[in-house]
Design a protein around this nucleic acid. Structure first.
Lengths: 138, 138
DNA sequence: TATTGACTTGGACTTGGTCCATCGTAGGAT
DNA sequence: ATCCTACGATGGACCAAGTCCAAGTCAATA
């Protein structure tokens, strides 16, 4: 659970007030914010920050491999700072809550050669959908 | 491989020229068109059809369970008429080509109870990403 | 063939995101 | 400590995908 800012500093990332607040906002577990949510939280700490900068910074964090882009639906992309331990997502169909999950087994081996159409497969994304306890109670 | 139009007629779906061409455009295997692609193909057959109608009709086909909405990336949603046989998707990261695939095993059982956070899980979507033979050659 | 509620239309609007010319500043050099 | 300059930040225009709505049209029933 090492700190995102620490790692970025260690990589010689040029630090600015804007980049710092974006990295701070993204720190933590089960964090899956949209760009607009990141902007809102960043604006609390640094009112002058611009939308373009948030998008630029998020894009850069994704390129650096420090943050994952998650396109869970047709709406806004979400940004997931848990890029170190491979994981999948569990999403509540009702309220949209997201949890990181760790299925067992290798999903790659579940796809027979005959079903690969000659592709060289490099990644598998899994999205579990269901209803969270809060929504089930309501 | 029964015909989409047949099924819709059988379900008492009110038929119009617009709905017919949308259903015709979507018929087939490994079809994963965006709304704009559907509109373009529909316009070939029925030039007066409007964008709103294409969106309305696609939305309705999804509600009826006759077509699946696939959000593969942050771009436009794709519409998949193969809603009858459960399947997953294999996508070329380079050119975006999509194939329907059928992994073995039950991905639901790969998620231990401790990793379910009390959710009632109803579906699992898997997206395999890789490079297709054509792109690998280039 | 008359009726009517469901369907269609196109244009305005919204959301999520990108682009770009210009300004500002972090961090190395002096 | 200060100066330089390349890299970062800004905001406003722009774009793509999709939704909404009031008004017009038409498929299906009677």
């Amino acid at each position: 659970m090492s700190d995102l800012l620490e790692r970025l500093r260690g990589r010689g990332w040029r630090m600015t007030a804007q980049r710092r607040v974006v990295a701070e906002v993204l720190n933590g577990d089960h964090v899956h914010l949209t760009a607009d949510e990141v902007l809102a939280r960043a604006t609390d700490r640094l009112p002058e920050i611009s939308r373009a900068t948030v998008y630029n910074t998020l894009g850069e964090l994704v390129s650096l491999g420090e943050v994952l882009e998650v396109a869970t639906d047709g709406r806004a992309k979400r940004y997931d700072p848990n890029a170190h331990r491979p994981h999948q997502h569990l999403i509540c169909s009702t309220c949209g809550a997201i949890r990181d999950v760790h299925p067992t087994g290798d999903p790659l081996s579940a796809l027979p050669a005959a079903e690969r159409f000659g592709f060289t497969i490099s990644a598998v994304e899994m999205t579990y959908r269901g209803r969270c306890p809060e929504c089930a109670r309501a």
